[in-house]
Design a protein around this nucleic acid. Structure first.
Lengths: 149, 149
DNA sequence: TAAAGATATTTGCAATTACAAATAATTTTA
DNA sequence: TAAAATTATTTGTAATTGCAAATATCTTTA
């Protein structure tokens, strides 16, 4: 195994760099990276129960619960009881939507800059392969669960 | 912008899943994900000053400094002064090497399982595109630095 | 060659994080 | 239909995190 071809290494490095690059943009409006993940997820997919939002953002359950407390205090989101009274539906507030729409063009510009020397085909391939990789991880997870359970 | 095609989203999701999947393997030998990053980096690249190791693992400087304290207490690594007395060279101990070699086959098996339905060509393409993406982020970073500085 | 400036790393501190246990509400089972 | 099992979320707690300031060592400059 060579470090520079090890997929978790390659992915982590790119992921961390995305964070480093977007952070100053987020700081300008007083938002952190985790909150940003929640904001785009809700903006794109609409109100979600906490569990679904955790899945969607890859943020740990209890971490998310407390993150939502903070976001609620800043009036970025609100929680309202769902039809099933165990679950809450988390939604963007007006403020949350406005903040998201303020960040979004800059985030898009960043992605455009980063992928400037990618062809359309390359970009499509990259996205497709990342999705396939995720699916493979999913299979693997199920395999593990079967072995344990 | 659609969430499921947003690169930071795709990358973060895969990265988090890698962490989730390797964690139980690491727990068996009492190692956490950040320590594992340090272990493979040192195993593959040999002794490094803290700064270079931070770059190599994408772990924040001060976080790494304290992580190394803990790893040193567990006798996984040691720090010795470099030729330049400001810097320390961090190296694997015998124990560190042994632990790494214990984890490595399982990590390899995991990667093999995850990429089972990738062709050789697809894998090569994925690695190459991730490297190219990182390079793009690098360019972008330099652009930002220029704008600020 | 002493002072000023750079470089490498550590530490103070306040905040975030994740595991596991607790709470709250619903569904199943006997 | 009451007890047991399941599902959704929160909270206790101890540990990790990252920013900014501090320390410690070199390097340059006047």
């Amino acid at each position: 195994m060579e470090l520079s071809t090890y997929l978790p290494y390659l992915v982590n490095r790119v992921g961390q760099r995305f964070i480093t690059d977007i952070t100053p943009i987020l700081n300008e409006v007083g938002v952190d990276i985790q909150s940003w993940r929640v904001l785009i997820a809700l903006y794109q997919r609409g109100g979600q129960p906490v569990g679904a939002l955790s899945e969607l953002t890859s943020i740990n359950f209890s971490t998310l619960s407390r993150l939502l407390d903070r976001m609620e205090m800043k009036d970025l989101v609100d929680r309202r009881r769902g039809s099933d009274a165990r679950s809450f539906t988390v939604e963007l507030t007006e403020v949350g939507r406005a903040v998201t729409e303020k960040i979004l063009p800059q985030a898009n510009a960043l992605e455009a800059a980063v992928t400037a020397n990618f062809s359309k085909a390359e970009l499509a391939t990259l996205r497709q392969l990342l999705a396939k990789l995720y699916a493979g991880l999913d299979n693997d997870k199920r395999t593990c669960d079967r072995m344990v359970g």
